[in-house]
Design a binder for these strands. Structure first.
Lengths: 159, 159
DNA sequence: AGCAATTAGATTGCTTGCAATTTAATTGCT
DNA sequence: AGCAATTAAATTGCAAGCAATCTAATTGCT
């Protein structure tokens, strides 16, 4: 009764960690979070908060739903996150008078000014890499996402 | 005093969301988590717990530190996660008699048996894609990680 | 042997992230 | 108009993830 299981030890075993496509993605994302963390902390932001700022710097007023569609996050994630950003003074939250179901998130003056101090972030982050590698990264990610997007059972999100 | 900020609106703006390398990675990882969630929930696992099981199915006894080195996670993440897996009956945790600082995580019989039921997971997940796309994904991720790994200021982890 | 430095995990406190549910506003249909 | 269905956020409950700190065991050095 010693070898009850232990099947599939060969390298065709689908359950080998090194055969997983998703694990490197998972690990890389955790790594990126750790790398961004200290840089963004100086601005008073976390990584997802930084993403929200990127969206708002493009369009200063956005509903929670629009932010979520852009970032693939739902209100369960965004609501508390936005409350923290409001407490930090970067945005305001207010019901849309034209449709009271919606909540409009608006950049504050402080939030707009923060953009100046954030301008160096992409370069700072890229500085760990050679310029060619950044292009290579960009291309790999583009391919990756383009392939992932073809999944037969898409998630809710925008679609 | 109306246009205090609003510089860099062009497409050379480094702060455009669509120019970010890391955002698609972040979004893709969240997506993968949502896709794996329901499949793994039937086994009583979450995605990071599944990763721990993959490692343990390869080596049935591992210290917390070894697991962390393999998965790039620290004890702050692993300790509570492993306690939940212990409560679920998949592993046991015990101090290493040879070095009482270490905690050895060991597969239980139930944890070994679970492997059978997990064998279909990789295929199930890949089923949303055409076989060629999976190869393409694998190659993109390989490139991605290989480039990321060249960052000048590596994180702690194994190294 | 004795003690400082190191190492391995655990703990604390905080922020995501998501499923499921709830609440309130709006639409649509009759 | 009246009411069911839909929609947008908020809320609840739980599991990660990580920095910082703490504790206990081991190493290393004299």
């Amino acid at each position: 009764m010693s070898k009850v299981v232990a099947t599939q030890a060969g390298e065709d075993d689908p359950l080998l960690l090194d055969r997983q496509v998703c694990f490197p993605l998972y690990a890389a994302t955790n790594l990126l979070n750790r790398l961004y963390g200290p840089v963004l902390a100086k601005l008073g932001l976390t990584y997802p908060q930084y993403l929200v700022m990127l969206v708002l710097w493009e369009h200063q007023v956005q509903s929670v739903g629009e932010l979520g569609a852009r970032l693939y996050l739902d209100s369960g994630t965004l609501t508390p996150l936005l409350k923290r950003m409001e407490a930090a003074g970067f945005v305001t939250r207010a019901r849309d008078p034209a449709d009271e179901r919606r909540v409009l998130v608006t950049l504050t003056a402080e939030g707009k000014v923060l953009r100046e101090r954030a301008l160096h972030v992409p370069e700072t982050m890229a500085n760990g890499y050679r310029p060619d590698d950044v292009d290579s990264l960009r291309e790999s990610v583009r391919q990756l996402v383009s392939t992932l997007a073809q999944h037969k059972t898409r998630p809710p999100a925008t679609e």
